[in-house]
Design a protein around this nucleic acid. Sequence first.
RNA 1: GUGGGCGUAGCUCAGUUGGUUAGAGCGUCGGGUUGUGGCCCCGGAGGCCGAGGGUUCAAGUCCCUCCGCUCACCCCA
Length: 418
Amino acid sequence: MQIKAIKGFKDILPEEAKRRRKIEDKARKIFENTGLKEIRTPVLEKTEVFARGIGEHTDIVEKEMYTFIDRNGESLTLRPEATAGILRAVIEHKLYNTSPLLKLYTIGPMFRHERPQKGRLRQFHQINVEYVGSYSPLADADIIFLAYEIVTSFADPEGHLLEINSLGCPKCRPLHRKDLLKFLENNKKELCKDCQRRAKTNPLRVFDCKNEECKIVLKFAPVMKHYICPDCASHLGKVLDTLEAYGIPFVQNPYLVRGLDYYNRTTFELVSKGLGAQSTVAAGGRYDGLVKLLGGPELPGVGMAIGVERLLLLMEEEGDERREGLFIAAFGDEAREEALYWIGYLRKKGIKCEFSLEDKSLKAQMKQADKSKARYCLIVGENEIENEEAILRDLETKEQEKIDLDELPEGILEKIKE
RNA sequence: GUGGGCGUAGCUCAGUUGGUUAGAGCGUCGGGUUGUGGCCCCGGAGGCCGAGGGUUCAAGUCCCUCCGCUCACCCCA
């Protein structure tokens, strides 16, 4: 039996690695422009970090985490999301004392033990942003801007919908929750089994139910919109105004909920038509109570995450890469030995330079040169050694010229630098 | 955790009602050009037909079990 990677864990082969790097480079560029700083936290944390941060009764914590007991008896967990760990680090190093507003990003793997499907893996990657320290709705809008900007620079904006909602705050949310619970209890018999379960675990989730009968019943259910306090309402209003100023189209979705307990007020999802059932390519929201919950001071926060694998699914194919650098086709002992010096020299000068490890025929080496996508091929065999002239061929234009051997390798630098 | 679909070459897939040495395209390597890549032509390598068991004179093909992949539910990035 062949050894294979474990379920939901994927090898990232060279072609895909290249496309990922393109996404990461772009994200970093945008982050630098917006003044964010990178932070990298461990993939492994004490289980407590996530249990407290995400919420004991969320699906993620209850059944999706990679949790194990370490050799010293301590419970550890592979991070299922980035926020809790980053905030742990912010608190541990008192980063909030270094600046009134922390703007942080991280890119890396997350782990959830779910059944894999399109756009869902057990090890997946997120581009993550956290703003810690601002109550301003402009912070919310900034976060959404970043998510939107990165996603739409790789995927067609037309195929996307930004959904936004407010979950309220500790003042107004409990009122809604109380009424909703009452409503669900009264209509228990009309609801499907899933919704009866949700009513106990995560009541807001019932609004996501696809069951037609549930939908009819829930039309009469209390909606957060009608409970939202003036402060939360004005906060949301300013976020929406700012989105308009940024030119980001959106729709309000009063039923939008998040699966993590820590969110309050603004919550959003960037949904794509180009994905399967797992259609959310980026999502996030505000979490004003979380820093304190994790043992830090009372600090507000907003954040978002982009699913890299999902963005990858939406990324259009790129065209042919352009030719670059040099391939040295050397054959015969003398030429091959000489070529080694040139290669060393050119590589140190920062020139992309390849050659054949085997003493193959000229034709075979030319083929290799072509495949390597080199722009130029330097041809050196017995004849060239004898005439003391090498041949430099432009693989794109097919033009060839001769170069005196004693001008090599310096002479090449001029010729191949465009 | 629960369902559906699918497992034949590195990749994408053919493979008659079970019948002899399992095929194609792409890719790869080599040759056609005694020293010049892509296009074209020719050739080579590469398969325990997912694994195990069963039926049969005979199984890639039929039956059972297991494993894997995949899509969906659930949930989420």
